[in-house]
Simulated assay, not measured.
Amino acid sequence: MQEQERRKFFRIDHQVSIELKTISAEEIAKNPTPVQFEVSPYFLLLSQLQDLDTEGDHLLRKIAEKDANTAAFLQLMHRKIDTIAKAVAVNGIELEQILSQEINLSEGGMMFEYPDTFEMDQHLAIKLIFPETCIGLLLYAKVCRLIPMPNGHYKVGIEFIRMPESCRVLLARQVMLLQSQQRRRERLSTEQSDD
């Protein structure tokens, strides 16, 4: 992906849990999604439910046009299922086993600090979890940037590759949600300092 194309994505700095493994291009060719990680049955639960939400949004809008009460009831059921799914997912995802750190994220890739170096164009399998929403993603990526740091670590820039459209939409949604939360915090902070 060209530098100019990568820059068109919204970017956000955020704390996430991340696990990664170096892999070969052959492993990517064999499996549409990473299989290198142990994941509980609950790991992708919220991601799958959000995929279903995306599919159902259009239908819910059509129902709302014809019957507001039915649409309101369906939205209530949606919130109920979402609450139950989050409770189940929180118990099923063990975040303490995964490195948690600040990353710079967009739907096209991310940059993070890492204690070891990689080769340029090295392929990676990535397990990414957003702790506040418990949304987990399994992604493939390629190293496209390495910057040595004074502490001996490296700033690693990666580009997501072979990402399913449902994953891309979910990631874009997370980035936009985090951006709006950040803007809201900044606005509140500004309002409080003005008082």
Results as ranks from 00 to 15, higher is better:
F37I: 10
F37T: 05
F37W: 10
P41T: 12
Y42M: 11
L44M: 07
L44C: 07
L44W: 06
L44Y: 02
L46E: 07
S47A: 13
L49R: 06
L49Y: 09
Q50F: 09
Q50R: 11
Q50S: 10
Q50H: 14
D51N: 14
D51E: 14
L52M: 15
D53W: 13
T54N: 15
E55D: 15
E55N: 09
E55T: 08
G56Q: 13
G56M: 15
G56K: 14
D57G: 08
D57V: 09
D57H: 13
L59V: 08
L60F: 01
R61W: 07
R61E: 14
R61T: 11
K62N: 13
I63G: 03
I63P: 02
A64C: 06
E65H: 01
K66P: 02
D67L: 01
A68Q: 14
A68S: 12
T70P: 00
A71N: 06
A71W: 02
A71Q: 07
A72H: 03
A72G: 06
F73G: 02
F73V: 01
L74W: 00
L74V: 00
L74R: 02
L74S: 01
L76Q: 08
L76P: 02
L76G: 05
M77I: 08
M77C: 11
H78F: 09
R79I: 03
R79P: 05
R79K: 12
I81Y: 00
I81Q: 07
D82K: 02
D82W: 00
T83G: 05
T83H: 05
T83W: 04
I84G: 04
I84P: 00
I84S: 01
